[in-house]
Design a binder for these strands. Structure first.
Length: 873
RNA sequence: GAGGGUAUAGCUCAGUUGGUUAGAGCGCUUGCUUGACAUGCAAGAGGUCGAUGGUUCGAGUCCAUUUAUCCUCACCA
């Protein structure tokens, strides 16, 4: 016994230590090597406010699998990590922390606030990175980036100026989504819609000339003080005569015109609609077309302002109630109609979003979207699974201009300066000292910052040094694969694609590998409010990172959601333990001076069998990984290791190990070879345990991480031996099956007689039968006549076990009859096919031959069952 | 309103370009202290692949219709 391992695998003794050796070896670091093909992944940068959750665990497991696979295949592999400053989320956290201390942003001012934010980043920004390391992520930590670091900021500034100079960034008064809690504008993508119960309130607006009234409906009565018109359709016969007339807003008393606009739909409600340009996107358009004034009646924190008259100071809901009451009292209410409608809320704080007119910076999207659509249509970037390109196209084709300015302090400040003298805007790569038009030095910078997604949109190239021409950019760009969840396609993936097409003239990545979200055991989204989130770190602590990774990689197909359950992790943990014990068994049998893994010259049947299966496994796993079928790849590995290698090969190996000498040396070599090669294939999925075992086994090289990926070998094809082995295994299974049915304990051995024409196979199998089928002895011959025996029929043999005292002959006859019927049924099906001329002429020869062979096997089996039945008497 | 996903064993899910008898894990039943592993070994029960129709020699897989369920997008008073 050379080395000894613990009886059970304990990841706690292994994972941190192994990770440290990888760091010490600098194995994750990449330097551009022009001799090698690059393979690059940039991490979806987690927020610095973030804590590792299951989504990160899944996302990073998938990335690490791909990166480790390609690294072993010999690519120049770079996985570039980093974090996102997450403007709105981070600022909210810091503001909340300050609130605890009783201070506000305004108390400490912009500079003081930013100082605090950077301190906060220094303190907490590294937390998520440390957590990613726990997962085993093999990122090049020397190249870690931050969206607000110097290089990224330079890229942001370059892109802003670039787009501004091309007229693709502009400043204007538009309706934007306003979050009254975060007190900032947000983009369309940042609004989440949810169905709410609400009402249509129908009100009468009287004509000024006393000639009756016009009825309008609204779901938001609090906007009434901001009404500046009532619109009707120009072709609407009912209202033909009122166009141009003046109505009086009830209670408010302000006079507004009735205008004709096609926006008013004749078949909706009364056909007349009130227009509030300051607080509704459509109304804003109507206002522009009809030159209506824009009256903003709300403050930036969700209250009515002085323009709302007596309602000033109320919050929106109070105002709604008050207005409804006042209008009702004034007799203006016609009816209240309950309804359901979509209400937008802020994706960060879930406060109801108010549409509001405001002066903001926008990116003109149409010219940017077109090349980005074309790039995907031309296949320059492929989505996996493919169906996500539809989602991408749908969004890109219907995109509206992107509001990029935020009324926040934490972020990239907008590089625009306003001249107090001439009003000109100076946009510049370097901070200007004077107005670009009049030369005045009285200029002030825009106080706003950019949408956090503006900087993450540049991530694939800003992190490689752009706008500078670095060797990294030249070698690693465009990146290879982007791994992310479908929930982030609009926010991030689409914006990276159009940004890269515009700035680099090239797509940012070849492939977007999309995964779903990890749900809880009941299929619900994991969320803070439900409290159903599972902390990956706790799972790792209990079961190990390898078990968690295996769980997330198994049974997960691209783009689909998956449910987390602890049972699954348990099964993964058990698998880790299984491998551990297989290794333990091998090590127990190795000598001190065991040679490095190699294939011995002399091979036994079972050696060829296992090598042949391993060889096929290598090909399949490689193919699957190249096609992003990670779940399929890992389940094949699982099956091979557990069923083929452990349950069969190791059991058979014990025979020769006990014999010692040459035979034992031979089988040891095969054990070591297959084990260590299989560990390589498994390494991307379970990096820690595979490294730990690989290091303990005889090996060449420093780390399994850099060991060459196994390749399919012509020398390891042993089809005939595989077939022979299969015949033997079939017989062993059949014997076990019969013994099992009769509840015979393994301790009760019995002589086994095998009547077969495959005498050679079964003679080699004698020892296998003794070991695996409780045979005391085995006699192989052409035919036997053994009374009172249990008989077992396989396609290639008729097996007798004289255990007459245990046999119920009546049951035996029934069983054999049933088995015969089954065989006959199948045979009939196959013969049916084989007599079909269409099948014979159109099916591939391989399939036809297979069916013919199967038919032969079945007839043979039926013949043998008949024999057995007649012997029963 | 538009688009999309999913439906396969009691549960959770795989199933690759259509091809022998549709798989796994968990759960269940039976038997095992087989000197790597009870986080284990062996055996077993359990499925008309949501429904209908079509294409095909052949359909869980492709097409159409339909039901259930989930999601995304959308400015409708």
């Amino acid at each position: 016994m050379a080395k000894e391992l613990a009886k059970q695998y304990d990841p706690k003794n292994v994972e941190d230590r192994i990770y440290q050796t990888w760091l010490d070896g600098n194995y994750f670091h990449a330097e551009p090597d022009p001799e090698k093909k690059p393979y690059t992944i940039v991490i979806p940068p987690p927020n610095i406010t973030g804590q590792l959750h299951m989504g990160h665990a899944l996302d990073n497991t998938l990335q690490d699998i791909l990166i480790r696979f390609r690294r072993m295949q010999g690519y120049d592999t770079l996985w570039l990590p980093g974090t996102d400053h997450a403007s709105i989320a981070t600022e909210a956290k810091i503001v909340a922390a300050m609130k605890e201390e009783g201070i506000t942003k305004e108390d400490i001012g912009r500079e003081g606030f930013l100082k605090r934010a950077w301190e906060w980043k220094a303190q907490y920004g590294g937390r998520i990175i440390e957590q990613l390391k726990k997962m085993g992520s093999s990122c090049d930590w020397e190249r870690e980036r931050f969206t607000l670091d110097e290089g990224c900021s330079k890229a942001v500034r370059e892109v802003f100026c670039n787009l501004y100079e091309k007229g693709l960034i502009y400043r204007g008064e538009r309706i934007i989504n306003w979050c009254t809690h975060c007190k900032t504008s947000i983009s369309d993508a940042e609004v989440e819609y949810e169905e709410h119960d609400g009402n249509f309130w129908h009100f009468k607006y009287p004509f000024k000339d006393g000639s009756g009234s016009i009825e309008v409906a609204t779901t938001r009565p609090e906007t009434i003080p901001g009404d500046t018109a009532v619109a009707v359709h120009p072709d609407d016969e009912r209202y033909k005569d009122v166009i141009g007339k003046t109505v009086v807003i009830p209670v408010i008393g302000r006079e507004i015109p009735v205008v004709a606009d096609t926006y008013a739909k004749m078949d909706k409600g009364t056909g007349a609609v009130k227009i509030t340009p300051a607080h509704d996107p459509n109304d804003f358009e109507v206002g522009l077309r009809n030159n209506l004034p824009v009256i903003n009646v709300m403050t930036d924190d969700g209250f009515m302002n002085e323009k709302a008259g007596k309602y000033a100071g109320m919050n929106l809901m109070e105002c709604r109630k008050a207005i409804v009451k006042d209008l009702t009292d004034a007799g203006a209410l016609v009816k209240i109609e309950p309804t359901k409608h979509e209400v937008g809320s802020c994706y960060r704080c879930h406060t109801v979003v108010e549409p509001r007119v405001s002066k903001q910076w926008f990116v003109k999207m149409k010219p940017l979207a077109e090349p980005a659509i074309k790039a995907v249509k031309d296949g320059k970037t492929k989505f996996i699974p493919e169906r996500f390109d539809k989602i991408y196209f749908n969004w890109m084709e219907n995109i509206r201009d992107w509001c990029i300015s935020r009324q926040l302090w934490w972020g990239h400040r907008i590089p625009a300066w306003y001249c107090e003298d001439c009003g000109e805007i100076t946009v510049s790569r370097e901070d200007p000292t004077k107005c670009c038009k009049c030369g005045s030095t009285h200029i002030t910078q825009d106080p706003d910052t950019l949408d956090t997604w503006f900087s993450s949109a540049l991530w694939p190239f800003s992190t490689l040094g752009w706008p500078d021409k670095t060797p990294e950019l030249a070698h690693y760009y465009p990146t290879s694969t982007l791994v992310t969840g479908y929930d982030i396609i609009f926010f991030w993936v689409a914006r990276m694609i159009f940004s890269a097409c515009e700035q680099m003239g090239e797509v940012p990545f070849d492939t977007v590998f999309i995964h779903g979200i990890v749900r809880d055991e009941l299929g619900r989204k994991m969320s803070k409010s439900l409290g159903n989130g599972i902390d990956p770190l706790i799972v790792i602590d209990k079961y190990g990172a390898d078990a968690l990774r295996l769980t997330l990689a198994t049974g997960n197909s691209p783009g689909n959601d998956m449910r987390y359950s602890e049972k699954k992790v348990e099964a993964s943990r058990n698998f880790a333990n299984k491998i551990w014990n297989a290794a333990r068994f091998i090590l127990m049998n190795l000598d001190e001076n065991e040679p490095a893994p190699h294939i011995p010259v002399e091979l036994a049947l079972e050696d060829k069998w296992v090598l042949s299966l391993f060889n096929k496994l290598t090909k399949e796993v490689t193919d699957n990984l190249e096609k992003f079928e990670l779940g399929i790849a890992v389940s094949k590995l699982y099956d091979f290791i557990w069923d083929i290698f452990c349950d069969w090969y190791i059991e058979l190996a014990k025979i020769r190990l006990q014999q010692g000498g040459e035979k034992a040396a031979q089988v040891k070599a095969v054990l070591v070879y297959v084990m260590s090669e299989t560990l390589k294939l498994l390494h991307p999925f379970m990096p820690f345990i595979t490294e730990e075992i690989w290091q303990t086994l005889p090996h060449e090289g420093e780390t399994i991480m850099k060991a060459p990926w196994p390749v399919y070998s012509e020398k390891l094809i042993f089809d005939e031996d595989e077939a022979k082995m299969e015949i033997i295994m079939e017989a062993i299974r059949a014997i076990r099956n019969r013994r099992g049915e009769m509840n015979v304990p393994p301790s009760r051995k019995a002589h086994v007689y095998i009547a077969t024409d495959k005498t050679e196979e079964f003679e080699t199998a004698t020892v296998f039968m003794q070991r695996l089928a409780s045979a005391s002895d085995v006699t192989v011959g052409e035919s036997f006549d053994i009374p009172n025996a249990v008989s077992i029929v396989t396609a290639h043999a008729k097996i007798y076990i004289p255990m007459g005292d245990l046999v119920d002959f009546e049951a035996e006859r029934k069983r054999l009859t049933k088995e015969k019927e089954n065989a006959e049924k199948k045979l009939a099906q196959i013969n049916n096919k084989l007599s079909n001329p269409g099948f014979l002429s159109k099916a591939p020869q391989q399939v036809v031959d297979g069916q013919k062979a199967e038919a032969e096997k079945l007839s043979e089996k039926i013949k043998m069952i008949d024999e057995s039945l007649s012997q029963l008497g």
